[in-house]
Design a protein around this nucleic acid. Structure first.
Length: 446
RNA sequence: UCCUCGGUAGCUCAAUCGGCAGAGCGGGUGGCUGUUAACCACUAGGUUGUAGGUUCAAGUCCUGCCCGAGGAGCCA
Protein backbone atom coordinates (compact mmCIF):
# COMPACT_ATOMS: atom_id res chain seq x y z
CA UNK A 1 0.00 0.00 0.00
CA UNK A 2 2.79 2.41 0.97
CA UNK A 3 4.66 1.46 -2.17
CA UNK A 4 1.59 2.28 -4.23
CA UNK A 5 1.29 5.70 -2.59
CA UNK A 6 4.94 6.46 -3.25
CA UNK A 7 4.48 5.37 -6.84
CA UNK A 8 1.40 7.53 -7.21
CA UNK A 9 2.98 10.67 -5.74
CA UNK A 10 6.18 10.28 -7.68
CA UNK A 11 4.10 10.28 -10.85
CA UNK A 12 2.31 13.46 -9.78
CA UNK A 13 5.34 15.30 -8.40
CA UNK A 14 8.18 14.21 -10.62
CA UNK A 15 6.27 13.13 -13.68
CA UNK A 16 8.05 9.78 -13.64
CA UNK A 17 6.25 7.26 -15.76
CA UNK A 18 5.47 4.03 -14.02
CA UNK A 19 5.20 0.49 -15.32
CA UNK A 20 1.75 -0.65 -14.25
CA UNK A 21 -0.33 -3.77 -14.74
CA UNK A 22 -3.64 -3.60 -16.56
CA UNK A 23 -5.59 -4.88 -13.54
CA UNK A 24 -4.31 -1.87 -11.54
CA UNK A 25 -5.16 0.79 -14.13
CA UNK A 26 -8.08 2.23 -12.17
CA UNK A 27 -5.53 3.57 -9.65
CA UNK A 28 -3.98 5.80 -12.35
CA UNK A 29 -6.85 7.89 -13.73
CA UNK A 30 -5.86 10.12 -16.65
CA UNK A 31 -2.18 9.47 -15.96
CA UNK A 32 0.49 8.65 -18.44
CA UNK A 33 1.63 5.10 -17.71
CA UNK A 34 3.71 2.32 -19.19
CA UNK A 35 2.26 -1.08 -20.07
CA UNK A 36 4.44 -4.08 -20.89
CA UNK A 37 2.84 -6.99 -22.68
CA UNK A 38 1.99 -8.92 -25.81
CA UNK A 39 -0.20 -8.24 -28.85
CA UNK A 40 -3.53 -10.03 -28.35
CA UNK A 41 -5.13 -8.71 -31.54
CA UNK A 42 -5.04 -5.66 -33.78
CA UNK A 43 -7.44 -3.90 -36.10
CA UNK A 44 -7.14 -0.91 -38.36
CA UNK A 45 -9.62 1.48 -39.85
CA UNK A 46 -8.07 4.19 -42.01
CA UNK A 47 -6.58 6.83 -39.80
CA UNK A 48 -7.22 5.01 -36.54
CA UNK A 49 -5.58 1.81 -35.39
CA UNK A 50 -6.56 -0.46 -32.50
CA UNK A 51 -4.17 -2.65 -30.57
CA UNK A 52 -5.32 -5.13 -27.93
CA UNK A 53 -2.48 -5.75 -25.51
CA UNK A 54 -2.44 -8.37 -22.76
CA UNK A 55 0.01 -8.30 -19.87
CA UNK A 56 -1.03 -11.39 -17.91
CA UNK A 57 -3.41 -9.46 -15.67
CA UNK A 58 -5.85 -8.22 -18.30
CA UNK A 59 -6.40 -6.98 -21.81
CA UNK A 60 -6.29 -3.29 -22.72
CA UNK A 61 -7.42 -1.65 -25.95
CA UNK A 62 -4.94 0.93 -27.18
CA UNK A 63 -5.44 3.37 -30.02
CA UNK A 64 -3.31 5.45 -32.29
CA UNK A 65 -4.66 8.14 -34.52
CA UNK A 66 -2.93 10.02 -37.30
CA UNK A 67 -3.89 11.87 -40.44
CA UNK A 68 -0.55 10.75 -41.89
CA UNK A 69 -0.67 7.07 -42.79
CA UNK A 70 3.12 7.01 -43.10
CA UNK A 71 3.60 8.18 -39.50
CA UNK A 72 6.26 6.34 -37.48
CA UNK A 73 3.71 4.86 -35.06
CA UNK A 74 1.60 3.50 -37.91
CA UNK A 75 4.64 1.93 -39.52
CA UNK A 76 5.55 0.27 -36.25
CA UNK A 77 1.94 -0.87 -35.75
CA UNK A 78 1.89 -2.49 -39.17
CA UNK A 79 4.97 -4.59 -38.29
CA UNK A 80 3.28 -6.11 -35.23
CA UNK A 81 2.14 -9.71 -35.33
CA UNK A 82 0.00 -11.61 -32.83
CA UNK A 83 1.93 -12.21 -29.55
CA UNK A 84 4.73 -9.75 -30.40
CA UNK A 85 6.14 -8.32 -27.17
CA UNK A 86 6.23 -4.58 -26.63
CA UNK A 87 6.20 -1.65 -24.22
CA UNK A 88 3.60 1.08 -24.64
CA UNK A 89 3.38 4.50 -23.04
CA UNK A 90 0.43 6.82 -23.07
CA UNK A 91 -2.50 8.23 -21.15
CA UNK A 92 -5.21 5.81 -20.08
CA UNK A 93 -8.80 7.01 -19.89
CA UNK A 94 -12.19 5.50 -19.25
CA UNK A 95 -13.79 4.65 -22.58
CA UNK A 96 -17.18 3.00 -22.95
CA UNK A 97 -16.47 1.72 -26.46
CA UNK A 98 -13.38 -0.20 -25.35
CA UNK A 99 -13.64 -3.76 -24.06
CA UNK A 100 -12.76 -3.62 -20.36
CA UNK A 101 -13.81 0.01 -20.06
CA UNK A 102 -10.34 1.60 -20.30
CA UNK A 103 -8.33 2.69 -23.31
CA UNK A 104 -4.80 3.94 -23.85
CA UNK A 105 -3.91 6.55 -26.40
CA UNK A 106 -0.46 5.43 -27.52
CA UNK A 107 2.29 8.04 -27.45
CA UNK A 108 5.35 5.79 -27.55
CA UNK A 109 5.87 2.18 -28.53
CA UNK A 110 9.02 0.07 -28.03
CA UNK A 111 8.92 -3.28 -29.80
CA UNK A 112 10.88 -5.98 -27.98
CA UNK A 113 10.29 -8.80 -30.42
CA UNK A 114 8.22 -9.34 -33.54
CA UNK A 115 6.69 -12.77 -32.95
CA UNK A 116 6.80 -15.53 -35.53
CA UNK A 117 3.46 -16.57 -37.00
CA UNK A 118 1.46 -17.59 -33.91
CA UNK A 119 -0.26 -20.96 -34.26
CA UNK A 120 -3.28 -20.23 -32.03
CA UNK A 121 -5.52 -17.80 -33.85
CA UNK A 122 -8.65 -16.13 -32.45
CA UNK A 123 -10.68 -18.75 -34.32
CA UNK A 124 -11.54 -22.25 -33.12
CA UNK A 125 -9.08 -25.12 -32.82
CA UNK A 126 -9.24 -28.82 -32.08
CA UNK A 127 -8.22 -30.55 -28.85
CA UNK A 128 -5.16 -32.42 -30.23
CA UNK A 129 -3.74 -29.20 -31.66
CA UNK A 130 -4.36 -27.23 -28.47
CA UNK A 131 -2.85 -29.97 -26.30
CA UNK A 132 0.21 -30.05 -28.53
CA UNK A 133 0.46 -26.28 -27.97
CA UNK A 134 -0.47 -26.27 -24.28
CA UNK A 135 2.55 -24.02 -23.54
CA UNK A 136 0.94 -21.34 -25.71
CA UNK A 137 -2.72 -22.25 -25.05
CA UNK A 138 -2.21 -20.97 -21.47
CA UNK A 139 -2.30 -17.44 -22.91
CA UNK A 140 -5.86 -17.83 -24.21
CA UNK A 141 -8.61 -16.14 -22.23
CA UNK A 142 -10.54 -19.19 -21.01
CA UNK A 143 -7.47 -21.17 -20.00
CA UNK A 144 -6.15 -18.05 -18.31
CA UNK A 145 -9.43 -17.67 -16.38
CA UNK A 146 -9.48 -21.32 -15.23
CA UNK A 147 -5.91 -21.16 -13.94
CA UNK A 148 -6.54 -17.87 -12.19
CA UNK A 149 -9.42 -19.55 -10.36
CA UNK A 150 -7.09 -22.49 -9.60
CA UNK A 151 -4.69 -20.09 -7.93
CA UNK A 152 -7.56 -18.60 -5.89
CA UNK A 153 -8.80 -22.09 -4.99
CA UNK A 154 -5.42 -23.18 -3.66
CA UNK A 155 -5.07 -19.97 -1.65
CA UNK A 156 -8.56 -20.42 -0.22
CA UNK A 157 -7.80 -24.02 0.84
CA UNK A 158 -4.61 -22.91 2.56
CA UNK A 159 -6.43 -20.03 4.30
CA UNK A 160 -9.28 -22.31 5.39
CA UNK A 161 -6.99 -24.72 7.22
CA UNK A 162 -4.51 -22.13 8.47
CA UNK A 163 -7.34 -20.03 9.95
CA UNK A 164 -8.63 -23.07 11.81
CA UNK A 165 -5.29 -23.84 13.43
CA UNK A 166 -4.25 -26.76 11.22
CA UNK A 167 -0.51 -27.27 10.71
CA UNK A 168 0.80 -27.82 7.19
CA UNK A 169 2.85 -31.03 7.18
CA UNK A 170 4.53 -31.91 3.92
CA UNK A 171 4.45 -35.65 3.33
CA UNK A 172 7.02 -37.46 1.16
CA UNK A 173 6.57 -37.94 -2.56
CA UNK A 174 9.07 -40.81 -2.71
CA UNK A 175 7.70 -43.66 -0.60
CA UNK A 176 9.20 -47.04 0.23
CA UNK A 177 6.27 -49.36 -0.42
CA UNK A 178 3.11 -49.76 -2.38
CA UNK A 179 1.07 -48.36 0.50
CA UNK A 180 -2.50 -49.02 -0.55
CA UNK A 181 -1.61 -52.21 -2.32
CA UNK A 182 -4.46 -51.59 -4.75
CA UNK A 183 -3.42 -48.86 -7.11
CA UNK A 184 -0.74 -49.12 -9.76
CA UNK A 185 2.14 -46.95 -8.68
CA UNK A 186 5.01 -45.33 -10.53
CA UNK A 187 8.18 -47.16 -9.64
CA UNK A 188 11.60 -45.55 -9.60
CA UNK A 189 15.09 -46.40 -8.45
CA UNK A 190 16.17 -45.26 -4.99
CA UNK A 191 19.88 -46.10 -5.02
CA UNK A 192 19.90 -49.87 -4.35
CA UNK A 193 16.20 -49.99 -3.43
CA UNK A 194 12.93 -49.33 -5.18
CA UNK A 195 10.74 -46.34 -4.44
CA UNK A 196 7.25 -45.34 -5.52
CA UNK A 197 5.70 -41.97 -6.24
CA UNK A 198 3.13 -41.12 -3.59
CA UNK A 199 -0.55 -41.61 -4.25
CA UNK A 200 -1.56 -40.13 -0.89
CA UNK A 201 -0.03 -38.46 2.14
CA UNK A 202 -2.63 -39.99 4.44
CA UNK A 203 -0.58 -42.60 6.28
CA UNK A 204 2.09 -40.02 7.11
CA UNK A 205 -0.63 -37.53 8.02
CA UNK A 206 -1.83 -39.95 10.67
CA UNK A 207 1.63 -39.78 12.26
CA UNK A 208 1.81 -35.98 12.16
CA UNK A 209 -1.77 -35.70 13.48
CA UNK A 210 -0.70 -37.64 16.59
CA UNK A 211 2.13 -35.11 16.98
CA UNK A 212 0.26 -31.89 16.18
CA UNK A 213 -3.43 -32.62 16.76
CA UNK A 214 -4.75 -31.35 13.46
CA UNK A 215 -2.73 -31.26 10.28
CA UNK A 216 -3.04 -31.13 6.52
CA UNK A 217 -0.79 -31.96 3.62
CA UNK A 218 -1.05 -30.45 0.18
CA UNK A 219 0.81 -31.70 -2.82
CA UNK A 220 0.91 -33.70 -6.02
CA UNK A 221 -0.03 -37.36 -6.15
CA UNK A 222 0.59 -39.92 -8.88
CA UNK A 223 -1.29 -42.83 -10.34
CA UNK A 224 -0.08 -45.18 -13.01
CA UNK A 225 -3.64 -46.31 -13.76
CA UNK A 226 -4.51 -46.55 -17.42
CA UNK A 227 -7.54 -44.35 -16.90
CA UNK A 228 -8.77 -42.46 -19.91
CA UNK A 229 -11.72 -40.33 -18.85
CA UNK A 230 -12.54 -36.65 -18.43
CA UNK A 231 -12.17 -37.01 -14.64
CA UNK A 232 -8.71 -38.54 -14.35
CA UNK A 233 -5.21 -37.15 -14.36
CA UNK A 234 -2.05 -39.21 -13.94
CA UNK A 235 -0.57 -36.44 -11.78
CA UNK A 236 -3.00 -34.45 -9.66
CA UNK A 237 -3.05 -32.31 -6.53
CA UNK A 238 -4.77 -33.18 -3.31
CA UNK A 239 -5.27 -31.56 0.08
CA UNK A 240 -5.64 -33.99 2.97
CA UNK A 241 -6.59 -32.93 6.51
CA UNK A 242 -6.25 -35.40 9.39
CA UNK A 243 -7.51 -34.79 12.94
CA UNK A 244 -6.78 -36.73 16.10
CA UNK A 245 -9.87 -37.55 18.18
CA UNK A 246 -12.19 -36.67 15.26
CA UNK A 247 -15.02 -38.97 14.21
CA UNK A 248 -16.75 -39.50 10.89
CA UNK A 249 -19.36 -36.86 11.80
CA UNK A 250 -16.63 -34.31 12.58
CA UNK A 251 -14.90 -34.61 9.23
CA UNK A 252 -18.17 -34.69 7.32
CA UNK A 253 -18.88 -31.22 8.69
CA UNK A 254 -15.30 -30.12 7.98
CA UNK A 255 -15.68 -31.23 4.36
CA UNK A 256 -18.92 -29.29 4.00
CA UNK A 257 -17.36 -26.17 5.50
CA UNK A 258 -14.33 -26.46 3.21
CA UNK A 259 -16.41 -26.78 0.04
CA UNK A 260 -18.65 -23.88 1.02
CA UNK A 261 -15.63 -21.71 1.85
CA UNK A 262 -13.98 -22.43 -1.50
CA UNK A 263 -17.19 -21.60 -3.37
CA UNK A 264 -17.71 -18.34 -1.46
CA UNK A 265 -14.14 -17.19 -2.05
CA UNK A 266 -14.41 -17.95 -5.77
CA UNK A 267 -17.74 -16.14 -6.11
CA UNK A 268 -16.38 -13.14 -4.18
CA UNK A 269 -12.99 -12.80 -5.83
CA UNK A 270 -13.16 -14.40 -9.29
CA UNK A 271 -16.47 -13.12 -10.65
CA UNK A 272 -14.84 -11.79 -13.81
CA UNK A 273 -13.19 -15.13 -14.60
CA UNK A 274 -16.46 -17.03 -14.04
CA UNK A 275 -18.08 -14.66 -16.54
CA UNK A 276 -15.35 -15.32 -19.13
CA UNK A 277 -16.09 -19.03 -18.66
CA UNK A 278 -19.84 -18.32 -18.97
CA UNK A 279 -20.33 -20.23 -15.73
CA UNK A 280 -23.92 -20.09 -14.44
CA UNK A 281 -23.22 -19.43 -10.76
CA UNK A 282 -26.75 -20.42 -9.64
CA UNK A 283 -25.88 -24.04 -8.74
CA UNK A 284 -22.82 -22.83 -6.79
CA UNK A 285 -24.80 -20.20 -4.87
CA UNK A 286 -27.34 -22.90 -3.95
CA UNK A 287 -24.77 -24.95 -2.03
CA UNK A 288 -25.68 -24.72 1.67
CA UNK A 289 -24.95 -26.68 4.85
CA UNK A 290 -25.85 -29.40 5.69
CA UNK A 291 -25.48 -31.42 2.48
CA UNK A 292 -27.91 -34.29 1.95
CA UNK A 293 -26.49 -37.29 3.82
CA UNK A 294 -27.27 -40.88 2.86
CA UNK A 295 -25.67 -44.21 3.67
CA UNK A 296 -24.31 -46.49 1.00
CA UNK A 297 -27.26 -48.85 1.46
CA UNK A 298 -29.73 -45.97 1.07
CA UNK A 299 -27.90 -44.89 -2.07
CA UNK A 300 -28.24 -48.39 -3.54
CA UNK A 301 -31.95 -48.35 -2.76
CA UNK A 302 -32.46 -44.89 -4.28
CA UNK A 303 -30.56 -45.88 -7.42
CA UNK A 304 -32.60 -49.05 -7.82
CA UNK A 305 -35.78 -46.98 -7.53
CA UNK A 306 -34.39 -44.98 -10.46
CA UNK A 307 -33.95 -47.96 -12.78
CA UNK A 308 -30.36 -48.81 -11.90
CA UNK A 309 -29.48 -52.39 -11.09
CA UNK A 310 -27.18 -52.16 -8.10
CA UNK A 311 -26.40 -54.84 -5.56
CA UNK A 312 -24.74 -54.54 -2.15
CA UNK A 313 -21.01 -54.49 -2.84
CA UNK A 314 -21.16 -52.68 -6.19
CA UNK A 315 -19.16 -49.47 -6.42
CA UNK A 316 -20.61 -46.34 -7.99
CA UNK A 317 -19.61 -45.59 -11.57
CA UNK A 318 -19.92 -42.26 -13.35
CA UNK A 319 -23.67 -42.70 -14.23
CA UNK A 320 -24.55 -43.61 -10.62
CA UNK A 321 -22.71 -40.60 -9.19
CA UNK A 322 -24.36 -38.32 -11.76
CA UNK A 323 -27.83 -39.69 -10.91
CA UNK A 324 -27.40 -39.02 -7.17
CA UNK A 325 -26.20 -35.49 -7.91
CA UNK A 326 -29.16 -34.92 -10.22
CA UNK A 327 -31.67 -36.06 -7.58
CA UNK A 328 -30.34 -33.73 -4.86
CA UNK A 329 -29.05 -30.75 -6.90
CA UNK A 330 -26.48 -30.36 -4.10
CA UNK A 331 -23.26 -32.11 -3.14
CA UNK A 332 -24.16 -35.41 -1.48
CA UNK A 333 -22.44 -37.12 1.47
CA UNK A 334 -22.39 -40.90 1.26
CA UNK A 335 -21.16 -42.93 4.27
CA UNK A 336 -21.07 -46.51 5.62
CA UNK A 337 -19.64 -48.42 2.67
CA UNK A 338 -19.10 -52.17 2.44
CA UNK A 339 -15.68 -52.95 3.89
CA UNK A 340 -14.87 -55.00 0.81
CA UNK A 341 -14.77 -52.00 -1.57
CA UNK A 342 -12.76 -49.71 0.71
CA UNK A 343 -9.19 -49.52 1.99
CA UNK A 344 -7.79 -51.69 4.79
CA UNK A 345 -7.40 -48.89 7.36
CA UNK A 346 -11.08 -47.90 7.57
CA UNK A 347 -12.84 -48.17 10.93
CA UNK A 348 -15.73 -50.67 10.96
CA UNK A 349 -19.15 -49.34 11.96
CA UNK A 350 -20.58 -50.18 15.40
CA UNK A 351 -22.83 -53.27 15.22
CA UNK A 352 -22.13 -53.63 11.48
CA UNK A 353 -18.59 -54.98 11.01
CA UNK A 354 -19.29 -55.45 7.28
CA UNK A 355 -19.56 -51.66 6.89
CA UNK A 356 -16.83 -49.04 7.33
CA UNK A 357 -17.00 -45.42 8.42
CA UNK A 358 -15.99 -44.05 5.04
CA UNK A 359 -17.11 -40.73 3.60
CA UNK A 360 -17.47 -39.71 -0.04
CA UNK A 361 -18.75 -36.29 -1.05
CA UNK A 362 -20.09 -36.20 -4.59
CA UNK A 363 -20.14 -32.82 -6.34
CA UNK A 364 -23.34 -31.62 -7.94
CA UNK A 365 -23.82 -31.23 -11.71
CA UNK A 366 -22.32 -34.64 -12.41
CA UNK A 367 -18.73 -33.84 -11.40
CA UNK A 368 -18.48 -36.94 -9.21
CA UNK A 369 -16.40 -37.68 -6.14
CA UNK A 370 -14.47 -34.66 -4.90
CA UNK A 371 -13.86 -35.82 -1.33
CA UNK A 372 -12.98 -39.30 -0.11
CA UNK A 373 -12.06 -40.15 3.45
CA UNK A 374 -13.33 -41.47 6.76
CA UNK A 375 -12.50 -42.64 10.24
CA UNK A 376 -9.35 -44.76 10.66
CA UNK A 377 -8.84 -47.92 12.66
CA UNK A 378 -7.30 -47.04 16.05
CA UNK A 379 -7.14 -50.57 17.55
CA UNK A 380 -3.69 -52.10 16.88
CA UNK A 381 -4.88 -55.70 16.82
CA UNK A 382 -7.71 -54.98 14.40
CA UNK A 383 -5.32 -53.04 12.14
CA UNK A 384 -2.81 -55.89 12.09
CA UNK A 385 -5.60 -58.30 11.24
CA UNK A 386 -6.70 -56.11 8.30
CA UNK A 387 -3.13 -55.78 7.04
CA UNK A 388 -2.87 -59.57 7.05
CA UNK A 389 -6.27 -60.00 5.36
CA UNK A 390 -5.22 -57.62 2.57
CA UNK A 391 -1.92 -59.50 2.22
CA UNK A 392 0.13 -56.34 2.72
CA UNK A 393 3.80 -56.52 3.78
CA UNK A 394 3.80 -56.36 7.60
CA UNK A 395 7.32 -54.96 7.83
CA UNK A 396 6.44 -51.91 5.69
CA UNK A 397 3.54 -51.05 7.99
CA UNK A 398 5.39 -51.48 11.29
CA UNK A 399 5.64 -47.74 11.87
CA UNK A 400 1.98 -47.31 10.93
CA UNK A 401 0.86 -49.90 13.48
CA UNK A 402 3.18 -48.25 16.02
CA UNK A 403 0.91 -45.19 15.94
CA UNK A 404 -1.76 -47.39 17.57
CA UNK A 405 0.54 -48.52 20.35
CA UNK A 406 1.52 -45.18 21.85
CA UNK A 407 -1.62 -43.35 22.90
CA UNK A 408 -3.95 -44.48 20.16
CA UNK A 409 -7.07 -42.35 19.61
CA UNK A 410 -9.91 -42.40 17.10
CA UNK A 411 -8.97 -40.14 14.21
CA UNK A 412 -10.34 -39.15 10.84
CA UNK A 413 -9.44 -37.31 7.68
CA UNK A 414 -10.17 -36.94 4.01
CA UNK A 415 -8.67 -35.95 0.68
CA UNK A 416 -10.04 -33.32 -1.67
CA UNK A 417 -8.95 -33.44 -5.30
CA UNK A 418 -8.01 -29.94 -6.44
CA UNK A 419 -8.61 -30.53 -10.14
CA UNK A 420 -11.97 -32.27 -9.60
CA UNK A 421 -13.11 -29.37 -7.42
CA UNK A 422 -11.88 -26.86 -9.98
CA UNK A 423 -13.56 -28.72 -12.86
CA UNK A 424 -16.86 -28.37 -11.04
CA UNK A 425 -16.31 -24.73 -10.03
CA UNK A 426 -15.52 -23.76 -13.63
CA UNK A 427 -17.85 -26.35 -15.15
CA UNK A 428 -15.17 -27.36 -17.65
CA UNK A 429 -15.76 -30.35 -19.90
CA UNK A 430 -12.45 -32.06 -19.18
CA UNK A 431 -10.11 -32.10 -16.19
CA UNK A 432 -7.06 -31.57 -18.46
CA UNK A 433 -7.84 -27.83 -18.56
CA UNK A 434 -7.60 -27.42 -14.77
CA UNK A 435 -3.82 -27.81 -14.41
CA UNK A 436 -1.19 -25.88 -16.39
CA UNK A 437 0.52 -28.97 -17.82
CA UNK A 438 -1.73 -32.03 -17.49
CA UNK A 439 -0.14 -35.47 -17.36
CA UNK A 440 -2.51 -37.81 -19.18
CA UNK A 441 -2.48 -41.39 -20.32
CA UNK A 442 -0.20 -41.41 -23.39
CA UNK A 443 0.60 -37.69 -23.14
CA UNK A 444 3.56 -36.19 -21.32
CA UNK A 445 4.26 -33.37 -23.80
CA UNK A 446 4.70 -30.46 -23.41
C1' U B 1 -6.82 -53.26 -22.01
C1' C B 2 -11.64 -53.12 -24.84
C1' C B 3 -15.41 -50.53 -27.99
C1' U B 4 -16.56 -46.36 -31.36
C1' C B 5 -14.95 -42.37 -34.43
C1' G B 6 -11.19 -39.64 -36.89
C1' G B 7 -6.19 -38.12 -39.52
C1' U B 8 -6.94 -33.39 -46.44
C1' A B 9 -3.19 -26.02 -46.66
C1' G B 10 -0.20 -23.13 -40.43
C1' C B 11 -5.59 -23.79 -38.09
C1' U B 12 -11.05 -25.36 -38.56
C1' C B 13 -13.33 -28.09 -42.09
C1' A B 14 -15.54 -29.48 -47.30
C1' A B 15 -14.79 -32.62 -51.63
C1' U B 16 -22.05 -36.10 -53.98
C1' C B 17 -21.81 -42.93 -57.00
C1' G B 18 -14.33 -44.01 -57.27
C1' G B 19 -13.62 -39.06 -62.15
C1' C B 20 -9.99 -31.29 -62.29
C1' A B 21 -7.81 -30.81 -54.31
C1' G B 22 -11.74 -26.35 -52.27
C1' A B 23 -13.60 -22.54 -48.52
C1' G B 24 -13.19 -19.60 -44.05
C1' C B 25 -9.53 -18.07 -40.58
C1' G B 26 -4.29 -17.03 -40.13
C1' G B 27 0.12 -15.00 -43.59
C1' G B 28 1.30 -11.20 -47.69
C1' U B 29 -0.31 -6.66 -50.69
C1' G B 30 -3.73 -2.58 -51.13
C1' G B 31 -8.19 0.20 -49.20
C1' C B 32 -11.24 2.22 -45.20
C1' U B 33 -11.73 8.42 -39.46
C1' G B 34 -14.18 4.03 -33.59
C1' U B 35 -12.90 -1.11 -34.47
C1' U B 36 -15.15 -5.19 -30.98
C1' A B 37 -13.12 -12.92 -33.33
C1' A B 38 -13.83 -5.56 -37.56
C1' C B 39 -14.80 -5.13 -42.78
C1' C B 40 -13.71 -4.97 -48.45
C1' A B 41 -10.47 -6.42 -52.73
C1' C B 42 -6.38 -9.14 -54.52
C1' U B 43 -2.60 -12.93 -53.47
C1' A B 44 0.73 -17.05 -51.96
C1' G B 45 0.04 -21.65 -49.61
C1' G B 46 -1.00 -29.39 -50.75
C1' U B 47 4.00 -36.02 -50.50
C1' U B 48 -4.59 -36.08 -48.55
C1' G B 49 -0.91 -39.90 -41.29
C1' U B 50 2.09 -44.29 -43.15
C1' A B 51 3.19 -49.06 -45.95
C1' G B 52 0.98 -52.15 -49.31
C1' G B 53 -3.31 -53.80 -52.43
C1' U B 54 -7.77 -53.42 -55.98
C1' U B 55 -8.77 -50.20 -60.40
C1' C B 56 -8.18 -47.12 -66.84
C1' A B 57 -8.53 -43.82 -62.52
C1' A B 58 -8.11 -43.74 -55.06
C1' G B 59 -8.67 -38.15 -50.37
C1' U B 60 -12.75 -41.71 -51.34
C1' C B 61 -12.68 -49.03 -51.57
C1' C B 62 -9.57 -53.27 -48.90
C1' U B 63 -5.43 -54.89 -45.32
C1' G B 64 -1.50 -53.84 -41.79
C1' C B 65 0.86 -50.14 -38.87
C1' C B 66 1.33 -45.15 -36.44
C1' C B 67 -1.02 -41.04 -34.04
C1' G B 68 -5.25 -38.72 -31.79
C1' A B 69 -10.32 -38.05 -29.80
C1' G B 70 -14.87 -39.89 -27.27
C1' G B 71 -16.54 -43.66 -23.97
C1' A B 72 -16.01 -48.12 -20.85
C1' G B 73 -13.18 -50.70 -17.50
C1' C B 74 -9.68 -49.54 -13.83
C1' C B 75 -9.41 -45.83 -9.97
C1' A B 76 -8.39 -43.36 -0.97
Amino acid sequence: MLALLIQYFSIIIFGIMKWVYIEDLEKYPEKKVEIRGWVYNKRSSGKIRFLLIRDGTGILQCTMYSADKDSFLFQEFDRLTQESSLILRGVVKKEKRAPGGYEMSIEEMDIIQIAEEYPITPKEHGIPFLMENRHLWLRSQKQHAILKIRSELIKSIRDFFDNRGFRLMDTPILTPSACEGTTTLFETEYFDQKAYLSQSGQLYNEATAMAFGKVYCFGPTFRAEKSKTRKHLIEFWMVEPEIAFATLADIKELGEDLIIYIIERTLDNRQQELEILERDTGPLEAVKKPFPHITYEEAIQILNENNFKMEFGDDFGAPEEAKLAEIYKMPVCVTHFPAKIKAFYMQPADKRPDLVLGLDILASEGYGEIIGGGQRIHDPELLEKKIAEHKLPQQAYKWYVDLRKFGSVPHSGFGLGVERMLSWLCKVKHIRETIPFPRLLYRIYP
